[in-house]
């Protein structure tokens, strides 16, 4: 396995056998946690299955796997941060229910996705849009919470929707 070139491009199964143990160790050192490391190593190979890559040598494969794993670590930290922010806000609500792990992970994914779409907007426009989308909160109430006029809320909603629709239509990344 330590030859400098692959005789023929390896399958994902082959890559898994060669590199999974090493990758998991690398992730464990980076994350300081064996169970997160196992999850992310799993994800790296799932992604490779979904979008196979051709490698000519083991060092090339390792470099690629490490880059991918590093990206996933950053995602994981960001996901944890978002989850914590959401849970903290939820904890301050008296009637809040503790969501199940499955429910929670889908909610956090949705928050991340929406956060990306709204990334370039002013904070108040993003908040107004989320409130309007979630419960159809009246503009007057959104305006009071944000300390702006009703007309401003309507402008925020149009601005936020346009930003998201442009992304949805592939006209903006």
């Amino acid at each position: 396995m330590n030859t400098s070139e692959y005789a023929s491009p390896p399958s994902v199964e082959h890559l898994y056998l060669d590199h999974h143990g090493w990758l998991q160790g690398w992730l464990r050192r980076r994350l300081g946690n064996a169970s997160d490391a196992a999850d992310l190593a799993h994800d790296v190979f799932l992604r490779l299955l979904a979008a196979p890559k051709r490698f000519d040598s083991p060092p090339e494969a390792r470099g690629y796997l490490r880059t991918m794993a590093n990206g996933l670590c950053i995602d994981l930290w960001r996901r944890r941060e978002v989850e914590q922010a959401w849970l903290d806000a939820l904890a301050s609500r008296p009637e809040a229910l503790e969501p199940s792990p499955e429910h929670r992970s889908i909610i956090v994914e949705t928050l991340l996705e929406i956060g990306d779409m709204l990334g370039r907007l002013p904070q108040k426009a993003a908040s107004a849009f989320v409130m309007a989308q979630l419960d159809g909160m009246p503009y007057r109430e959104i305006a009071a919470r944000l300390g702006v006029s009703d007309r401003m809320v309507k402008k925020y909603i149009a601005q936020a929707m346009l930003q998201c629709a442009l992304i949805e239509a592939g006209l903006e990344a």
């Binding site: 922010a85 956060g115 370039r120």
Partner: peptide, 17 residues
């Protein structure tokens, strides 16, 4: 909860896009 969603989205906006 809408307030929790607003807080979650605000945290998500800070990360790399």
């Amino acid at each position: 909860d809408p307030d929790a969603a607003v807080a979650g989205v605000a945290a998500a906006r800070r990360g790399p896009v």
